[in-house]
Amino acid sequence: MTQSDKNSAGKSAAQQKSASQPTVAGQKRKRGANTSKLSLDARYESWLRHHRQVAVDSAERLIRHPVASILTMLAIAIALVLPAMLWLGLGSVRALDYDLDSSARVTVYMESGASAKQVSELADEIRNEQSVGSVKVITADEGLHEFQQALGVNDATSLLDANPLPATLLVTPKEREPGAVDALSRQLGELNGVDEARVDLEWLERLHDIGVLGQRLTLGLAVLFGLGVLLVVGNTIRLAVENRRKEIEVVTLIGATHAFVRRPFLYSGAWYGLGGGVLAVALLTLGRGWLSSPISALAQSYGSDYVMPALGFSGSLLLLICSILLGLLGAWIAVGRHLADIRAR
């Protein structure tokens, strides 16, 4: 099917459609209706064609002013790097989650002399609690064994008449929120056959606070620097709109919709966002390469096998998506404000 066949096939549908739109041509002159209305298919095609054209055209406009474009992208990249770094840092704190887990753990000491059966029954009972994640049983014998290993003695029992250690249950709660852990610990302490339930609340609270602080700091900075990206893109687009004011006025006069006017600027914003995002990923990767060897050397000297966190594929993708969206949003706001302004004159 050729282009013109398609058009004539779509005409009857297009004429129906024209009834709902204001028409100057009226009944006498169908000619105007035929030439200015398109079938749905052709509309979609032309919409796609215009998007392609505008995408290429706005990219070319950026390339025509390489220095200005790169500077804008660099400004975006720098605004993205800091929150991204904090976010990565937060990720490596999360790698220390094991520490958080173990400090949130409630240690339940059984009354001494509890039989193995009693211990496992109690463990099952605790496991059935809603707020409990997992329960690990350490029998009196295992406890003694660990104790001996820790002391470096082979046979401490030889000094004692009997095993003085109680069986213990290590209860990991589902929630690590200090209040909830404290409540769980009290509840466990009340159980029959339990001597005492303990948890290091102070340490837990401290870790919890550090975690919350880190998250808020990252979030706050991300919002702040995201705003920075919006401003950078918004200002650049504002200038672009100003440069093309005449063109906007003309196309508006001859029937361009808001979407049509906005489109090239949205694409510019998206290109700036993409460029800034790519630069940010490059900066983060370079920075990591530069810092990682001294940092792991330092960590090793403390006996840690800490490795600097990397952005990775999904992290890079997320960063790119965020920066493109920020670019689009910045452009949208700038054009919207400016369009209202232009129409007002």
């Binding site: 204001p22 100057v24 009226g26 001859i254 029937g255 361009a256």
Partner: peptide, 23 residues
């Protein structure tokens, strides 16, 4: 214009209206 009271045109319809007149 063309039987249509321009006061009844919504802002979103204005571009489509303008396409039908040459200026």
């Amino acid at each position: 214009v063309g039987g249509r009271d321009l006061n009844t045109l919504r802002n979103s319809q204005i571009p489509f209206y303008r396409r039908q007149i040459g200026v």
